[in-house]
């Protein structure tokens, strides 16, 4: 369990809600890290090229498209809102930061549209792919959860994710911030 706990750090400043952290390794698949407090539950894990290959080949993706997927690093995230108010997943409020402290630019839906144009992926497969990605924006109701992937350029060094969630219908409530350290793009 300590292996997992070391990956999770909590940022609590005067502006932010303070968190209590615990990880439950027994419930998680390999490579997954979990953060949970009274306000939100978040699980993050990276996908291996083999996992991506198996899933998307099974959905009929062509080889060129599979190659485009497996050369990138896919981070799966799941978030559940445990607050009494709306909690906002806004991907632009998530920062992936490399070992040198530089922000890693994630691939957007526009990037993927261009990729699929280049690889000749059919519309139906593009649609399926879209549903496996995290939405750009989602206002999570109490107890609602959302899961999906975010793709990054492949990283040879560990990186971190700092995810900020705004709250309230007008996004003017307390922000919640969670940081996951030492994430790795896994070859297997």
């Amino acid at each position: 369990m300590s292996t997992f706990i070391k990956y999770i750090t909590v940022i609590a400043t005067s502006l932010l809600v303070s968190f209590s952290v615990h990880a439950q390794m027994s419930e998680l698949p390999p490579g997954a890290v979990k953060f949970e407090n009274e306000d939100l539950l978040m699980i993050v894990m990276t996908r291996t090229p083999e996992q991506l290959n198996a899933f998307y080949t099974g959905r009929g993706f062509n080889r060129t498209s599979i190659d485009a997927l497996t050369e990138r690093c896919f981070v799966f995230g799941m978030v559940e809102n445990k607050t009494q108010e709306r909690l906002w997943l806004i991907l632009d409020d998530w920062q992936f930061i490399d070992a040198e402290g530089n922000v890693i630019r994630r691939y957007t839906r526009d990037d993927w549209r261009q990729t699929w144009k280049d690889t000749g992926l059919e519309q139906a497969k593009q649609s399926t792919f879209g549903w496996t990605q995290l939405p750009e924006v989602r206002d999570l109701h109490r107890h609602e959860h959302v899961g999906g992937q975010v793709a990054l350029p492949w990283q040879d060094q560990p990186f971190r994710l700092v995810a900020t969630f705004r709250s309230g219908i007008d996004k003017d409530g307390k922000p919640h911030k969670v940081s996951f350290e030492d994430l790795e793009c896994r070859k297997q």
Binding site: Q123, A124, S127, T128, G130, P135, R138, V146, G147
Partner: peptide
């Protein structure tokens, strides 16, 4: 919805 386009028009909150 073989192309997924009708679903995208409806924009459900995930599947």
């Amino acid at each position: 919805d073989p192309q997924g386009l009708t679903t995208e028009d409806w924009q459900p909150r995930g599947l």
